[in-house]
Structure formats: structure tokens, C-alpha cells
Amino acid sequence: MPLPGTDPGTPFLLRSVYLKSLRDVRHGLVGWSIGIALLVITESLIWPSFRDMPDIEKLFSQYPDYMQRLFDVSAMTSGIGFINSELFTLMLPVLFLVHAIGRGARLVAGEEEDGTLDVLLVTPLSTTRILLEKAAALVTGVFALGLVLYVVTMTCSLSIGMGIGPLDALSGCLSMVLLGSEFGLIALAAGAATGRKSLAVAVPAALAVAAYVLYVAGLLVTSVDPWQHLSPMEQALASGPLGGGLPLDFLWLALGCAVVTVATLPMLDRRDIAAPG
């Protein structure tokens, strides 16, 4: 979203708030990408030896019912099931959440605490526009991480023969992107509402834990079951998420992202901006 009339001498990544916000995360994204790639590669390399263990199915059939559903253990004898339970049902969601919440908190609350927000706000850009560009940059960053995850997962599957198809991987990666984006946007919202980075981290982190508890409780307790569908964790993870197709639940996650963003846009106009120092 470069602005018209920008001096040609301006570096590309400094031509808008959106591009600058991406610039700020570029090193971080490289690090996160390497980390996630190493994780997926390691787990994929474990898979063949795991598959060849004798009596593995008998072992899993002894697991309690909710464990079987939570970690999808019954499917662990397939490549999809193994990667799902080892990575996509807990480890990767946590990593995507940590990345997105950290970014979301830094985008406004971080700038406000550092003192750089003052000059940025006293420009012709409206606060709505600034928040929208920052939200877009946040989602772009999470999406980039999802793309890396997709490429690595497909590469591992094809080279090791885990049988994860392109659509299977798509549903898994998309659920990570949507889940991360929703909680990252909540962090952005909490930061825009309060100007405090600690709260911008604490609020979405607490909500994520609550969502996970609701999801797990729904698996354990029948009376909670109808409510667990409200949990973004359930919406993202219950279908697989690898190989779950594209469930309608993903629309709820997308809607959640949209609602949080719309609610965030007017927030900086509604409060005082703290003076730095």
C-alpha cells in the first residue's frame, strides 16, 4: 500500500506503515521459519522408526478415550495422524500463537511504550488507517509462516513418504494461520485499547488458554460439549487439522479475525496516547 507521490529514493519497505511493519518482522520471520522447519523435519525423520514399531496399534487402543480424540492417537499409525498428534494439535498452535501474540502486542502497545508512536500519529494518516495497515501486516506475517510450514510439510511428506496430500497440508496450515491471526489481532486490539504491552500479551494468552480448556473440557464432559464449538481452538483443531478438509469452522475463525479487526479500528481515537518516559 505505498502512498502516491512517494519520493523514488524511499526504500520499498519504508513506503507505508504496512510495509514498514513487515520490515520490522523480517528477521524474526526468518528465525521462526527455520525453527518451524527444523521441528517438522525432525518429527518427520522420527516417523519411519515409529511406523515400524511392532504392536503400536494395540498400545494406543489402551489410551483413554479423550486422549485418543485430543491427540488423534488412533490415527498415529498413519503419517498424517502422526504429524497431527505430534505437531499440529499442540506444538505448532502454541508456536503460531506465541509469534502472533508477540507481534500483535508490539505493533501498537510496543510503539507506544517505546515512544515512537507519537510522531507516527501526528501525520495525515488516520488512526484507523494505521491500525488497519498494522493488522494487515500482522496477518501477512502469520500467513508467511504458514506458507513456510506448508512447503516444509509437503517436502517432508513427499521425500519420506508420509502420505500427506496437498489438500491435507493445506487444511492443517490454514488452521494454524487462522488461529494465530485471530489471537494476534486480539493482542493488537488489547494494545490499541490500553497502550500497555503486558496487557496486550496477557489478554490473548489468557483467552487462548481458556479456549483450549473449553475445547478439552468439551471432549471430557458431555454437558460442555455444545459450548466447545465457541472455542477458536476447537474450530481450528477438531477437524484434524491436517487432512480435515476445509471445515465450515474455519469461517468462524475468519469471522473472528474480521470482528476483532473492526472493533480495533476506532480504538486509538477513543483514548489518550501516553507520553513517553
Binding site: 512517494t6 519504508l14 513506503r15 507519537d118
Partner: peptide, 22 residues
């Protein structure tokens, strides 16, 4: 501002280019 703070990882030129673009 009373306590001016820019982005520490940008050069003065980059910082001013950014604000000029905005």
C-alpha cells in the same frame, strides 16, 4: 514531542524517508 524517540534500527535518512512517504 517532548521526548523524541525514533526507530533505533533505522538510519536518520531512512527514518525521514519513511515519515516523508507517510
Amino acid at each position: 514531542p517532548g521526548r523524541f524517540v525514533g526507530y533505533p534500527d533505522l538510519t536518520g535518512g531512512e527514518y525521514l524517508r519513511y515519515l516523508a512517504a507517510l
